[in-house]
Design a protein around this nucleic acid. Structure first.
Length: 490
DNA sequence: CATCCAAGCGCG
DNA sequence: AAAGCGCGCTTGGATG
């Protein structure tokens, strides 16, 4: 077990072919403990902005928890003191069991993130080029793709305004209003309600423009090297405990270009998606027996319909999402009373979290990550909606961390290694992409079926580890594919 | 000149 | 159609 700041140390080790089995990430754990008030903010160093954080030179912040191996004495002493404070705080915790699980999972997640960045998502420049040429067309004389220019010309023709500016929302609204459209914004939903020949080409123009600017040639030049897309993941980067990214936009990879993520020859991508994760999490954490029984089913939404709670599957989804997000209007609000009748404890759980937030109190996830205080000026109702969702989104993130952490070990064992430390990252099945409730494993073809089984087993194990004997299951939909775009749902 | 914000849209 | 949660990234335009 290593205690360190993973972001600083792991990349250099991975460059040298070294993986470790486990770690205790001082930054990530420190943040959790400070958030809970178990450590004073002054006990932890000021966080470094991840995007500009540079790896410490020569492993200066590296040491073994039991025995000093490296490191300048000063740094070493400071880090040991930090670790001591964190371990002591964990010892003092009244019910530290869940928190220890969180600490381990959060740290394991940091290792996963470093390894995924190191391995990268296999990415074919040729296939990406095909998509760009197909959708955007070749780049014309001005450097702008011809299909984009064509769509732009159609927009300007429909507006009768050859000089209309299309890339600035404010200018665009003015141009639309000059052309007689009664719109306040240029947003998609408002334009969809307008009957005018400009709408179709404008939608197309914006779609193409988005692809060009967010995932076009410039993006590829910045983020794809040696056949791998290597974004920077930021574990714990979202207040709820979800990961964020810093550069590369890995968590917004559009479906349109996922077909460019192609497995190496003789290898496969195993794409796995936890089905209806957040509703299942709510069912398990609230202890609502009826909802947990529905959560035992493969399709939870359909189970709602079969029990006569809602008329159809789409209503089930809208109602449940509305309940977890704090919707107060529209269809989901109409469906809420019947949800409350059928699943009183589940609904009370989110309602209670909302009230706590409205009163300015912290709420906590299942494993004990706490919500931040409301920023000044935030209305209580808005903060209540945030805390309502926080407990579910944050617990789902914890489930996903446990899933990832278990998977990392199980994949190593598939190759006969005792732990990830004994499995060479890039020549054995490894995680290569993660998206909140979805993972992609890059694996030699002959192991793909066993990888699938392992992913499913680890999902169920994550559920047991968090919730014990709940009836709720955590099914995973899996596709073994040559390219990410061929996975169901893509 | 750098930096910040809003709009819009990609993802869950 | 959004509504109701959490993000990152790009652009243009305003502000320092």
């Amino acid at each position: 077990m290593w205690a360190w700041v993973t972001r600083d140390i792991a990349p250099g080790l991975l460059d040298r072919g070294v993986r470790v089995a486990r770690c205790h990430d001082l930054d990530l754990v420190g943040r959790i403990l400070v958030g809970r008030g178990m450590l004073a903010p002054g006990d932890e160093p000021e966080p470094v902005t991840p995007a500009h954080a540079n790896p410490a030179p020569g492993g200066a912040a590296l040491f073994d928890a039991d025995e000093v191996e490296h490191g300048e004495a000063d740094d070493h002493d400071r880090l040991v003191a930090r670790l001591d404070r964190q371990l002591a705080a964990l010892d003092r915790a009244r019910d530290g069991g869940a928190l220890r699980v969180l600490v381990r999972a959060e740290s394991a997640g940091a290792l996963c993130a470093a390894e995924m960045r190191h391995a990268g998502l296999p990415f074919s420049v040729d296939r990406h080029e095909e998509v760009l040429l197909d959708v955007l067309g070749p780049r014309g004389p001005g450097g702008r793709p011809v299909h984009l220019e064509e769509a732009g010309a159609l927009v300007r023709a429909a507006l009768g305004d050859p000089r209309a500016s299309l890339d600035s929302p404010r200018e665009l609204v003015r141009a639309l209003r000059r052309a007689g459209l009664d719109v306040e914004t240029s947003s998609k939903w408002e334009l969809w309600g307008v009957d005018h020949p400009v709408v179709e080409p404008l939608m197309r123009y914006r779609h193409l423009y988005r692809l060009l600017t967010a995932n076009g040639w410039a993006w590829r030049a910045d983020w794809v090297h040696d056949g791998r897309f290597r974004p920077e993941y930021v574990p714990g980067g979202v207040v709820t405990g979800r990961w964020a990214t810093s550069g590369g936009g890995a968590l917004q990879l559009p479906r349109e270009i996922r077909s460019a993520a192609v497995a190496d020859p003789g290898w496969k991508l195993v794409v796995a998606d936890a089905a209806q994760l957040e509703p299942r999490i709510l069912a398990a954490m609230s202890g609502d027996v009826g909802m947990a029984r529905a959560g035992a089913e493969r399709d939870m939404y359909l189970a709602f319909v079969e029990r006569g709670v809602v008329p159809d599957r789409d209503s089930a989804k809208v109602a449940l999402l509305g309940a977890m997000y704090g919707s107060t209007t529209g269809r989901s609000a109409t469906l809420l009373p019947s949800l409350e009748r059928a699943f009183p404890r589940a609904m009370a759980t989110v309602a209670h979290a909302a009230r706590q937030g409205e009163r300015g109190e912290q709420v906590a996830t299942w494993l004990g990550r706490t919500s931040p205080d409301a920023a000044p000026g935030v209305r209580p109702r808005d903060h209540g909606r945030f805390t309502r969702n926080f407990i579910v989104q944050g617990t789902a993130a914890e489930w996903a961390l446990v899933w990832l952490a278990g998977l990392r070990f199980a994949l190593a064992r598939l190759t006969g290694a005792a732990s990830p430390a004994g499995a060479p990252l890039e020549s054995t099945p490894h995680l290569c992409y993660f998206l909140h409730d979805e993972v992609v494993v890059h694996t030699p073809e002959r192991l793909a079926e066993r990888v699938s089984d392992t992913i499913r087993q680890e999902a169920e194990r994550a559920g047991r580890l968090l919730f014990g004997n709940t009836p709720v299951s955590f099914p995973v939909s899996i596709a073994i594919v040559d390219d990410y775009g061929a996975a169901k749902g893509s």
